[in-house]
């Protein structure tokens, strides 16, 4: 924002429709500011998108031309993709990651739904304290709990299993807090009416509350899925093998015999991003809405 604007020169007597006119700005200045704004935004947007473009561009070059820096990869080739397919079991890794992320997000959704329902449909002893227990998890750094959790997984025999990644992640404070907020704004009369009809609280949850929360549930599940897909720390700790989930498989490609295997790494990374980008492109509006809501707690 240009500092020069602090002094608004000409008094405005224009039509109140255009806000810029009210602030006493000439057409040229408005035009200039718009142009500068667009220029900066366009540059920033390109800078943000460029690494993603470059990843796919590199992956689509012929393997022997990976070091070429021409902006457009030509001729196109899937050589890097077949190569990464041979080196690491990328298909199975992606399937594993998908299964882990899906189970984690579904579990968090279910557990969160039940807890949020308890917080909204009843007033009970210890409610505030239990609610604070959820908020408090934000403060406990993962690194404090990792050692005891690691030893517990060891005793349960879950180290190096996908279950070991999933089970400790089944409750998400974010899910509980978000759903509670949505349920709190749910029309109470509907709940009361259902209760009058003699329905059990369990059936009210599934026949009245859930059908009316479809949009927030969908949005939340997307965020939870993406979070689980992108989680790195805990899988790295629990699964000490490269052939488990996609993030760990990729990490193995960083250390090649002759330095990193750039072509394979870019192809593998590109594949690891695809499911998330797919979800984003299909459900763009929901994804954006969901991230906004998760940010506004």
């Amino acid at each position: 924002m240009a500092v020069a604007e602090t002094t608004a020169p000409a008094p405005a007597r224009g039509e109140p429709s255009a806000v810029a006119d009210l602030a006493g700005e000439t057409g040229a200045r408005v035009w200039l500011r718009t142009a500068v704004g667009h220029g900066v935004l366009a540059a920033l947007s390109l800078a943000c998108i460029f690494p993603i473009y470059w990843m796919y561009a590199t992956s689509l070059r012929r393997p022997e031309e990976v070091y070429n820096v021409s902006l457009f990869p030509w001729p196109l080739s899937v050589g890097n993709y077949t190569h990464v397919w041979d080196v690491i079991p990328i298909g199975r890794l992606i399937l594993n990651t998908f299964a882990v992320a899906a189970l984690i997000s579904v579990g968090q959704l279910l557990v969160g739904l039940l807890a949020a329902y308890a917080f909204t449909a009843w007033r009970f002893r210890g409610q505030t304290l239990l609610y604070l227990a959820f908020v408090g998890t934000w403060l406990v750094p993962f690194q404090v709990t990792m050692l005891p959790n690691y030893t517990l997984l060891y005793r349960l025999g879950l180290l190096n299993t996908l279950a070991g990644v999933i089970v400790p992640n089944l409750a998400s404070a974010l899910g509980v807090l978000l759903l509670r907020q949505h349920m709190a704004s749910f029309p109470r009369d509907l709940l009361d009416a259902a209760r009058m009809d003699g329905r059990s609280s369990w059936s009210i949850l599934w026949t009245v509350v859930v059908p009316n929360l479809r949009a927030p549930l969908a949005a939340l599940s997307i965020v939870l899925f993406i979070n689980a897909w992108n989680d790195y720390f805990w899988p790295a700790l629990v699964l000490q093998r490269a052939d488990s989930v996609v993030q760990l498989g990729l990490r193995g490609l960083f250390v090649g015999v002759e330095g990193p295997d750039w072509g394979g790494l870019m192809a593998g990374s590109g594949l690891a991003c695809l499911p998330i980008f797919g979800i984003y492109l299909l459900l763009q509006r929901h994804v954006v809405g969901a991230f906004v809501r998760s940010g506004l707690k």
């Binding site: 992108n230 993030q247 990729l250 960083f254 990374s269 991003c273 984003y280």
Partner: peptide, 18 residues
């Protein structure tokens, strides 16, 4: 500007290192 939010950390690390 939002797109990088979706990139898994290791993939992001890979492309930036490249």
């Amino acid at each position: 500007i939002f797109a990088p939010v979706l990139v898994p950390p290791v993939a992001g690390a890979a492309v930036w290192q490249w």
